[in-house]
Design a protein around this nucleic acid. Sequence first.
DNA 1: CCCCGTTTCTACAACGTTGTAGGCAACGTT
DNA 2: AACGTTGCCTACAACGTTGTAGAAACGGGG
Lengths: 336, 336
Amino acid sequence: MRHRLKDVAERAGVSVKTVSNVVNGYLHVRPDTRARVEEAIAELNYRPNLSARHLRKGRTGVIALAVPELDIPYFAELARYVVTAAADFGWTVLIDQTGGRREQERVVASGITDHLIDGLIFSPLALTADDLASLDGTPMVLLGERVDHGPADRVMIDNVAAAREITSHLIQLGRRRIAAIGSQRTPEGASARLRLTGYADALRDAGLGYDEALVAPASAWHRADGAAAMRGLLTSGVRPDAVFCFNDTLALGALRALHEAGLRVPEDVAVVGFDDIEDGRFSIPTLSTVAPDKEQLARLAVELLANRLDGERKSPAPRELTAPYRLELRESSQTP
Amino acid sequence: MRHRLKDVAERAGVSVKTVSNVVNGYLHVRPDTRARVEEAIAELNYRPNLSARHLRKGRTGVIALAVPELDIPYFAELARYVVTAAADFGWTVLIDQTGGRREQERVVASGITDHLIDGLIFSPLALTADDLASLDGTPMVLLGERVDHGPADRVMIDNVAAAREITSHLIQLGRRRIAAIGSQRTPEGASARLRLTGYADALRDAGLGYDEALVAPASAWHRADGAAAMRGLLTSGVRPDAVFCFNDTLALGALRALHEAGLRVPEDVAVVGFDDIEDGRFSIPTLSTVAPDKEQLARLAVELLANRLDGERKSPAPRELTAPYRLELRESSQTP
DNA sequence: CCCCGTTTCTACAACGTTGTAGGCAACGTT
DNA sequence: AACGTTGCCTACAACGTTGTAGAAACGGGG
C-alpha cells in the first residue's frame, strides 16, 4: 500500500535517484522523463518517507514549541501564531506542554529534542540558567521574559515599560489606591517581578507611595487565582480604587470577584490586565489591557531560530529581540 | 557533539549491537558489560537518533492531533487532555491547525501524515466522506460529531440528547420563547444540525412550537458571532426569554450583547451554552452549559488509536464510542 | 569427557532516502 | 576532427538504527 522511490522508479523505468531528483525539483531532468516519473508518482500515490529523508539529510523539518499550558489562552494564541510563522519556513511544529514544571521542562529541552526536532521555541517558567547551559546545543529560542537564563536567543516585550504605562493610565484616571495582583516570590516569577517593577516605577513617578498591602500575590495566574486575590484585597480593608492584574486571566477572575462583592467596574474599581486575550474583548465589562504584538513575537522567534539553524556552526552571539506592544483601553478602565 | 551507537560501542569496547541491546533493555547482557555500556552512554550523553530508529522500526512514536483552531478554548482544552493521554502510551503529539478549511484538512490527513506519524486524531469540520475514503489508511480516529464521514473510528458525545436535555432545563424554568444561536446550513455544520435537532425535540416534547424566527445562524462560533446573532434576535423583535447557544463562546458573546442591550441574565433572558470551557466558570454571570467529559473523550480517542495501530493488519470494523456529559447549571440559567 | 542447550555477544544486512562521482550523449568551439 | 562543456542520467555509499543468524563461551547431564 505504501510505496517507495524504488517502486516509482521501476514503474517509470528510471533509476531511483532520478525519481528522487524529480521529487526534489532538481533542474536537469528531461521534460518527458519528468512527466513519466510524475505520472508514476501519481498512480502509486507515492509520499516520501520523512524519517528516511531526515536521517539522510540530518534535518527533520520539525521544530518544537514548548509552553507551560495550552489551555491558558495567551499560550494558545501564541501557539497559533508560531504554527503559522513556522509554516512559512516549511516547518511543522510539535507542541509540548511542560506544565511549567522544571523536570518536564528539562525533559523537553534535552530529551524529546533528540534528533526528532531541528530546534526549539521555549517559554520556560521554572528552568534555570544551569539547566540551559547543560544542553547539548539544540538550537533554541526563548520566548518570554525570564531574565536570568544566561546567554540564549530570546524574544520578549519590554515588560517593565508596559506595566509602567498601564499603571500610569490608571493614575491619569485619578485613581490613587492602585492595587496589583499576581506578584510572585519564587524564582519562576520573572514576569511578575518585571511587571511589579513597572508598577512601582509608575507610582513613584506620580509621587504615590508604594503600599505593600495593596500588592496581592498569586501563585498561579488562572482566573480562580485572580478571583481569590481580589476577594482577599476586598476583605483586608485596603479599599483599592483600581487594580493592575499581571495577566488577563487574573483580571477576569478579579472582575468576577468584584461583581460578587457588588462593586461596579470601572466606577468603583478600575481593572486592567496584561496579554490581550480574546476573552477580554467580550467580558463584562470589556477589559483594558497591555496588548503584546503576539504575531510579531512569534515571527521573530521563528526567524531567530532559522538564523540559528543556518549559522549553527558559527554560533554567533546570542541575540535578544523586542516586540512591540500597545495599550488596549476598554470599558474596565474608562468612565463611560 | 552528538554521538552515535558506534561512539558508545568504541568507548565501552563492545559491538554496536550490544549497545543497542542495552539501550533497548535486552535481557541477556552480562551485568558488568551492561554497566560499562551505561557508563559510556552517560559519559557521552548519548541519545538515540529517533529518525534512524523509526526508519528501521517502521514506527515513529509520534501521533498527530488536528484541530480547526488552537485558540478556540474547547480545542485547546481537548488538546491538553490528548497530550496527557498520549503520554501514557509513550507517544509524542504533533498538533496541527487546519483552520477548518477542507484543503488544509486534506493536507493534514494525507500529506503531513507521511511516515512522520503513526496515527492521527482528527477533529474535522469540512472534510467529506470521500476525502476520508481516499486516504491510504493512516490509522485515524475522528473526534467530534460529524455524522456523514462514513466508516471510521470515532469518539463523540450524544449531541442530540445533550441539546435536548439543556433545552428542557430552560423549559422547566418556565421559559417559553427559547431562541437558538449557532445554526448552520453548510455541510460543515454537523454539530449544529445535531444540536438543533435536540433543541427542536425538546420543544416538541413540551408541546411548544418551533419558531424559525427564534433560530439564529452563526457561520463561525466565536464570541463575535454570538454577540452579532444575539443583537440580531433582539432587534428583530422576537423577544426571547431564553437562549440556547450551540457553544460557550457564542454564549459569552450573547451575554455581552444582552448586557449592552440592558437586559438582565437570567432574569430577563436565560442563557446556556455547550462545551464547558473555563471562561464560563468566571463570566458574569457564570454560564450554564453542557459539559462533555473531555478527559474521557481524549482518553477514548487515544485508546482507539492504540487498538487500531496494534491490530492494523486485521483492520477490524470501525468502532464508535460515546463519552459521557453532564449539565453544569450556573447563574446564567438559575433565578437567584 | 562429550554433547547439547543456554547465555552472551558479534557481523551483516536492511529500513528509504540523498550526496557524490562519474558515464554517456549532444553540442559548440577551436 | 579533436576538444571541452553541458545536460541527463545512473551506481554506489552513507545517514544510525535494529532484526536475523550465528559464533563463542559456559555449564550441566549423560
